[in-house]
Amino acid sequence: MSAPAGQQERADTAAPAGKPAAPAPRAIVQAMKEYHPPLGGRGGMRLDFNENTLACSPAVRAALSAVTTSDLTRYPERGPVEALVAEHLGVAAEQVLLTNGVDEAIHVLCQCYLDETSEILLPVPTYSMYEVYASATGAKIVCIEADAADFAFPYERVLAAITPRTRLIALANPNSPTGTSMRREQILEIARRAPQAMVLADEAYFHFHGETVLDLVGAAEYPNLVVARTFSKAFGLAGLRLGMLAAAAESMHWLRRVISPYSVNALALACLPAALADTAYLDWYVEEVKAARAEFGAVCSELGVRTWHSDANFLLLAIGPKHREFCRAMHAHGILVRDRSNDPGCNGCVRITVGTRDQMRAAQDALRTVLQGL
C-alpha cells in the first residue's frame, strides 16, 4: 500500500547549518486548477448542483431545534457520531472519518498521499475537485478520457496507465457529470493492480445506484481501498457540509494526522444521527428521484434530446451549439441547470439534476418551451 507523501526526508530541502529552512515554492503553483462555484443568482428550481431539491428529513429539523446556545460554545467532537455512522454502515469505528463534505475528504487524501514525485489517475470527465486538490500538491495528473460515444468507463486504459509513481486513483461511481457507473469488480481489480496506490471509490451518489465496495474496506486483499460518501445529496444536508471516508485502520491513522480536528461543525454532528435514523424519508426521496429520472429521460427522448444512462440523481443532455442560450432560457423559466461544455468530451452538454416527479414535470414544460424557442 502507498506510504503517505512526505514521510521521507529529501536532501534537496535541507537548510544550511545554522540557517532556518524556507518554504520551497512548487513550480506547479502557476498551473494550479481553480474552482469558482457559480452560486450567485440561484433564484429558481435548483436543478444545477445535484442537491436534494426538496428538503432534509423533518427529524433533522427537530434535532437542529434541540441544539442549545450552550452547545455552540463547545468544540465539536466527531468521535461518538463516527461510531454511530460506522454501526449504521457495518464497519468498524476506527475505519470511519467524518469530513467537512466530500471535498475535504478528497483534500485530505491528496495531502496525505500526493507530492511532486507522484501521480494521480483521473478517468475524465469527472468531478473537478480531484484535479483542484491534486494540482496543489505538485503531483502529475494523468487523465484518461472515457469512450467518446457513450462515456463508458475506460477500464483497460486505466489499468494500462498505472505506474510505480501512481499513488492515488480517483473513481467516482456513479460519475459526474455523466451519471455512468463502473462495475464493482473493475474497482477491485484496479485496487489489486495498484497496491502502491490508494484507490478512492467516491460513492457520493450511492443511494441512487445501490452498488458499493464499502463491505470490502479493511479487507486483507484490499488494504488500499478507500470509500467516500456524502450526506449532501440524498440526505439533503449540503448546507451543513458533511461527508465521510471509510478505509483500513492503518490508512485512517495517517488521514487523521492530516485532517483538522474540528472541521466538522457541531450542528452537522447534532443532525446526522436523526438523518440516519429516518430511513423512511430517505427511501421515499430516493424512489421519487428514480421514478422522476425515468420519466424525464423518456420525455427527453420524445423531444429528440440525447441523454446518457444515469445511475445518479441527474441526467446529461446533449443540447448542442446553443447550450449557453439553453441554460439562460431555462433560467428565465425558473429552472436552474448546469452547462458542462467545458468538461472533457462534453461539448454542448448540459446537466440537469433530477428532483421529485412534480418538480420534473415543471422542468419538462420549461424544456418543451425552450427547445421550441431555440
Rank of each mutant, 00 (worst) to 15 (best):
M1H: 13
A3S: 13
Q7D: 14
T13K: 13
A15C: 14
R26M: 13
V29W: 15
M32H: 15
Y35A: 12
Y35H: 15
H36L: 15
H36S: 13
G41N: 09
R42H: 11
G44M: 07
G44E: 09
R46Q: 14
R46E: 14
L47W: 08
L54C: 14
L54Q: 09
L54V: 15
C56P: 09
C56R: 09
D71S: 11
R74P: 09
P80K: 08
E87T: 13
H88M: 06
V91P: 02
L97F: 07
L98H: 06
N100W: 05
L114P: 00
T126F: 03
V132G: 00
F151K: 00
T163Y: 04
T163K: 02
T163F: 05
R167E: 01
R167C: 04
L168K: 00
E189C: 02
V199G: 00
L200I: 10
E203K: 02
D215N: 08
L216V: 09
G218I: 03
G218E: 05
Y222L: 09
L237D: 03
A238F: 14
L240S: 04
L245E: 01
A249N: 05
A268D: 03
A275F: 01
D278I: 11
T279Y: 06
L282Q: 10
V289S: 07
A292C: 13
F296P: 10
A298I: 08
G304P: 06
T307W: 05
L316I: 08
G320M: 05
F326V: 00
R328Q: 15
H331N: 07
H333C: 11
R338C: 15
R340A: 10
D343T: 07
R351C: 15
A362Q: 14
A363K: 02
L371C: 04
